[in-house]
Simulated scan of single mutants.
Amino acid sequence: MTGGQGLGKAPSAAHEQVTLRDGADEVVVSVLAGHEPRWTVLFAAGAGGSPLRHLPLLTTLATAGCHVVAPHFPRLSSPTPGIEELAMRTRWLRLALNRAPEHLPVAGIGHSIGGALLLGLAGGDLWTISRDCLRAQPAARPLAKLVLFTPALQFLQAPHAVDAIQLPIQAWAASEDRITPPSQVDWLAAALAPRMPVQTHLAQGAGHFSFMDELPPHVTDPHPDRPAFLGEVAAQVTRFILA
Rank of each mutant, 00 (worst) to 15 (best):
P138F: 08
L153N: 07
A144Q: 14
L153E: 05
W127V: 12
P159H: 07
P168T: 09
L126W: 06
W172C: 04
D163H: 02
K145W: 10
A139M: 02
P159Y: 08
Q157N: 07
S130Y: 09
L167Y: 05
W127M: 04
T128P: 04
Q157R: 15
I169N: 06
H160V: 09
C133H: 07
A144L: 08
Q166S: 12
R141Q: 15
F149H: 13
L153G: 08
P151N: 10
L126K: 06
L126R: 06
C133P: 03
L156Y: 04
K145C: 03
A164S: 11
D132P: 08
L146S: 01
P159A: 10
F149C: 00
R135Q: 13
I165T: 08
I129V: 14
G124H: 05
C133G: 01
Q137H: 10
H160D: 13
A158D: 07
L148T: 12
A152K: 05
K145T: 08
L153S: 08
R141M: 11
Q137T: 13
Q137E: 11
C133R: 15
P159W: 08
L126F: 03
A158H: 15
R131Y: 01
C133A: 13
V147Y: 06
Q137P: 03
G124Y: 03
T128K: 13
L143R: 06
A144P: 01
P151V: 11
R141L: 09
A139P: 01
I169H: 07
L156Q: 01
P142S: 06
D132F: 06
L148S: 00
P151Q: 12
